[in-house]
Amino acid sequence: MNNQFRREDVDFYSSGTRCSAWLYLPDGDKKCPVIVMAHGLGGVREMRLDAYAERFAAAGYACFLFDYRNFGASDGNKRQWINVKQQLADWNCAIEFIKNDDRVDGSKILLFGSSFSGGHVITLSSKRKDILAAISQCPYTNALASMGTLSPVSSLKAFPLVIADLLSCLSGYHPVMLKLLAVRGKAAIMAVPVPDYKGCLELIPENSSFVNKAPARTLLEFVKYSPSRYTKDIESPIYYAVCLKDTLAPAKATVKCGKRSKKATIKEYNCGHFDIYLGDYFEKAIADYIDFFDNNIK
């Protein structure tokens, strides 16, 4: 199936804050299943999540792709603030909003998340009973798994900034910022090998709203958040896309978590964390994802 589709700008509200979304609608009068989507840690929707949405829409799915509050085209007066509780609230508001849009089939809600939002998809799938199926691509699973990938030098350089940022909370929101992404040895939330750093840069189009920084306290969000504890509670089908050369979301931890889900499909791709967004790995993955959804919407 290779349908034509259109994309509309849509706003919804989460805790009173306007969040910006793109709604992809296949042409025709048929109400389609809808895939709710959001990006990973500090990312924005135009960093190749739109490429996934376009392919899903061409295959006959509506897609609702949004920016979290404080990021991208969404409002929020605490820019670049990454907060797990708020991001999950944004997801829940997005789902409730779009399932009530009479242009889609609100009885068939699907989820797609990647990296940090892959972790959110795990959490949401365990807690909501209205999720028909979900895809969790190279997901963040827990702090222990991700801590094993950290550069000790980068961590030491980041630690004083975390302390300074926490102290800044005493006087309101005056954050001490830390780079989201840098090469190993630099102070960053994600300090990665050079090939991964270059791979991430390839995801950023010209004139993107992406900002390569976040409050240093973001590092503490990993300590508090473990989607892996919820994998055993997921009742609906879930697809775990595992990148075998992942330096941010270790493959071994993802496979271990995935095996706890009752209706898990676990597929391994011989690539790095950012490789699956582009080229041959993207083509293979998106074909697998469409097959998975096709087999689980009946």
Results as ranks from 00 to 15, higher is better:
288 D>A: 08
56 F>P: 12
17 T>W: 00
110 L>H: 09
37 M>E: 13
251 A>E: 00
261 S>N: 05
191 A>C: 14
126 S>D: 02
294 D>M: 09
286 I>E: 13
297 I>L: 01
15 S>L: 11
188 A>G: 03
167 L>G: 13
246 D>N: 12
1 M>C: 07
203 L>N: 12
74 S>Y: 07
190 M>R: 02
94 A>H: 00
89 A>Y: 05
113 G>D: 14
271 C>Q: 13
271 C>D: 04
81 W>F: 03
106 G>R: 10
156 L>R: 08
180 L>H: 04
2 N>A: 04
194 V>Q: 11
240 Y>K: 03
268 E>D: 07
153 V>Y: 12
2 N>H: 07
4 Q>G: 12
69 R>L: 07
298 K>H: 11
267 K>C: 05
146 S>T: 11
189 I>F: 03
120 H>A: 07
119 G>D: 00
230 Y>D: 10
40 G>C: 05
289 Y>T: 06
171 S>L: 09
170 L>Y: 04
254 T>Y: 09
296 N>M: 15
162 V>H: 02
32 C>T: 07
105 D>P: 07
128 R>N: 10
69 R>N: 09
272 G>A: 15
235 E>Q: 14
7 R>P: 10
108 K>Y: 04
200 C>D: 07
224 K>Q: 10
106 G>K: 11
159 F>H: 06
122 I>M: 02
204 I>D: 03
294 D>G: 04
102 D>E: 08
96 E>P: 14
159 F>I: 01
197 Y>I: 05
288 D>N: 06
16 G>R: 08
225 Y>M: 01
58 A>D: 00
